[in-house]
Design a protein around this nucleic acid. Structure first.
Lengths: 349, 349
DNA sequence: CTGTTAGCGCGTTCAT
DNA sequence: ATGAACGCGCTAACAG
């Protein structure tokens, strides 16, 4: 007999062993499905008895206890700073799809404060989507202590962890050039700290492409915003509300582009006709929306990131896995509805 | 002396004890800050020695090992089915804010498949935002086995876990009545399974409020969609694209309302003037957008949910905490820009 | 081939 | 301030 589930206390492997009349070792072998190879065999009849007992008690192995012995948590952590960003959702979606068949659970850390959390919480691998300069140190000590990291950053060098770099520069130039093929009044949406002038590769691509096209930088066409979707929306309203409004907008991220499209529509403009808008990043979301988002970005980025992360998670500490490296992803232009190809006769200048 | 961090293996409490020349017990007391009350006192000088040793080695307590003894993970899990929904982001934001000062980490489970995960993964408390009928059983056995659950559901009875119920019905009626005060052509956006007719409290509020106002149900004004933002957008395009388009829309969720606003703007309509749109849920996001979203919802919902969840997490198994209960949240109407108050002369019928 | 014993690996905690 | 037991599941080595 034995009491069934419901006592309020969690059944342990020992209770199952008692219930089934076998040793804890046998239960362990059955539950982890590792009879045969290294471990001893267990007869089918015994397996059945153990399974039944476990079922009756509602037993599930305690992951914490398992982790302490095996060093594996069957978990990956995704540290994502901007959850509302389609880019983040794309990462999540791709990782979930890849992790599920491996029995690995992706957990999302929505806090920018991953440093503290990761020092004590363990996962088989961790993806980090943004690193500030002050976090470089902590990052390296985490890696030195054995945390498997996959970091998304355009500057960082591999120092015990993988760095995913998606060389925005050339790709962003493609985006601006695409607009410049049919426009002369090209605005830019770029996040910047309060009062600071805009900076970064993605912004430089804008200024230098303009220069290369022989067009001077018009400060009034630069919509700096605070990094939020609401800020991007407001900046677009300012830019497109002008009398001599730009006929095209280059947004340095896809989520800013999405906000810009909403704002343009609010102003009664038809995106892809009255105004062209292009984003950066190639988030999965952009393909599905209406109008679909023209953008630049790496090919199969999210799937490839997911595969790398889970490979690292699975390879764990055992096999001498491939050494950490910097991984580059080539970018390309995705021309969709929000900034279509324009024939010569269709130019907006 | 002693080797500093960087050996690739994670320092244990024993290494710290050796380094500091004290026992592991002392290190434990120092690291968990529990000297004085229940535990024995540790002299300040010893505390300093231990701290220094830990620092030198880069030691952090292993949460898995700690969990195995204390039964606490200092973690709460948020199982959220629709991460892109502003409602989910509001939950996350509120919980993060409440959890941070308690030293508790919120981890997000973006998978609908919480049943499997929770059976083995442990958290001090778990929030679940959607339960299908097939999940009722698993839910109860989880609770019976000691998992602390806070479930958001409008039907469920408390069965070993807290149920948060936000009695949508009366609130939704308020929303529809608000529109009916100035409109006669009121459309509805409601998710429904492929082919199935719409159902649920939120939809019933629509039909019965119409009936009470002496207006027949016009099937053409019912925009059923697949539950996605893109679907809500498309459904709105259909409704508002009609010649005799509705002059007001009642969306059964805030995220559907947000999509509807985008769609209306795409069609060149000014929301709050040409068409009124009201949502359901009172997501924090709705207050910030432009136009701000009129909606109905509970007051301080997210903060109160966060407080309950973390109270449960902290109370853990020890103190005989308040018994699980069904918690009702009163709803009210939030009149904002997307569906403003209209004077008599300003009606759209 | 089948199953058990014994002890590991953590941080915590009680009795000394 | 400490030694040693404790909680959990895993697994090498052993016994039938």
């Amino acid at each position: 007999m034995g009491r069934t589930a419901g006592s309020g206390i969690r059944p342990t492997i020992r209770m199952v062993a008692a219930e089934a009349g076998v040793s804890t070792a046998t239960v362990s072998y059955v539950m982890s499905g590792r009879r045969g190879e290294g471990g001893p065999g267990v007869s089918d009849i015994t397996v059945e008895r153990v399974r039944a007992a476990a079922e009756r008690l509602g037993y599930r192995p305690n992951q914490a206890a398992r982790a302490i012995r095996t060093g594996r948590t069957n978990t990956v952590i995704l540290s994502l700073t901007m959850l509302s960003d389609p880019w983040s959702l794309s990462v999540i979606e791709a990782v979930q799809k890849t992790a599920a068949p491996l029995g690995i659970t992706p957990l999302i850390l929505g806090d920018a404060d991953w440093v503290k959390v990761l020092q004590s919480h363990d996962a088989d691998a961790v993806f980090v989507d943004a690193v500030t300069p002050e976090q470089h140190g902590p990052l390296e000590s985490l890696a030195a202590r054995g945390t498997t990291l996959v970091v998304f950053d355009e500057q960082l060098e591999a120092a015990g962890f993988d760095v995913i770099r998606s060389v925005a520069g050339p790709g962003c130039t493609l985006a601006v050039e695409h607009l410049l093929a049919a426009h002369r009044k090209v605005g830019c949406l770029v996040p910047s700290r309060e009062g600071r002038p805009p900076a970064g590769k993605r912004y430089e691509a804008y200024t230098s492409a303009l220069a290369a096209a022989g067009i001077g930088l018009n400060e009034d066409y630069v919509g700096a915003f605070d990094g939020t979707t609401a800020g991007a929306y407001a900046a677009t309203m300012r830019l497109l509300g002008r009398d001599d409004r730009p006929t095209a907008l280059y947004a340095t991220t896809d989520y800013a582009a999405v906000s810009a499209i909403n704002a343009a529509q609010r102003l009664g403009l038809t995106v892809g006709r009255d105004v062209d808008i292009i984003g950066v990043g190639n988030a999965i979301e952009g393909e599905r929306m209406s109008p679909s988002l023209s953008t630049v970005g790496p090919v199969d980025f999210f799937e490839r990131v997911a595969r790398l992360l889970l490979k690292r998670a699975v390879d764990g500490g055992s096999t001498p896995a491939a050494p950490p490296a910097v991984l580059d992803f080539p970018w390309q232009l995705f021309v969709r509805e929000s900034a279509p190809h324009r024939s010569e006769t269709n130019r907006l200048y």
